[in-house]
Amino acid sequence: MELTKNITLGVYLPGETVIHRLDPRTKIVIASLLIFLLLMIKSYPAYGMILLFLTAVIFISGIPIRYALCGLKPMLPVLILMWFFQLFLYSSPDAHVIFSWWIFTATDAGMHMGNLISLRVFFLFGATTILTLTTSMVGLTDGMESLLNPLRKIGLPTQELVMTMVIALRFVLILAEELDKIVKAQMARGVAFDRGNFIQKTKKLFPVFLPLFINAFKRAEELIVAMESRSYTGGKGRTKMKTLHMGRVDLIAGLIMLIFSAIVILIIFTIQPQI
């Protein structure tokens, strides 16, 4: 019963590789570009390129592939369901019917649509997982803060937003562990979480969240007092110990990404989409 075991999204795997050493801003921009490309792709060859790219990044960054994939496990049912949805519901005028039963009709167009959307979700997940596995949360938030900085001029409280994120990140793990303890304490007093149907199981979760929320509020209250006594008065007048620096590797990585994007865009516009 370890709730945090199979969560890979948001986990940082410390390392010393080139990918780890890139400026977080570079990584955020590259990941955003990838996501943008993924949303435009409609053909298998282009997905092949993305697969190649991500595999290369995983290889360089030394992330164990099995670990990177195990985070996908909880999403698998959703992916499969989505695939079936597309298979039966999507159709186009010139589609070939693969088979048909009662009110369900599966066409090749539906299958391609299912494939493409599943692949899209799969790769979106892959890109963000790699980003968080190779970038510390603090790095990510620093990067975000720096990238969002221009928005301060239009009155967006970016520093406060980022501080909220920093704190949320620190407490997500604490709360997950706390949840684990509460579930155990209830099991110890006769709650059988592993028995019953979905509704019964869900109902059993209510008494779990009561102490969790109460404790979370208590923590928040104490944290506010602690921050206040460490002279925190909001983002105004605050300085940072660490300032981000872009180096040669970032330039090279940026160039590689530019070339890669150009190729993918070329593929997108030249190769006939599957649907």
Binding site: S136, V138, I167, L169, R170, E222, A226, M227
Partner: peptide
């Protein structure tokens, strides 16, 4: 201490 540390590093 858990309720007074702000950062993850």
């Amino acid at each position: 201490p858990d309720n007074q540390l702000v950062s993850s590093i």
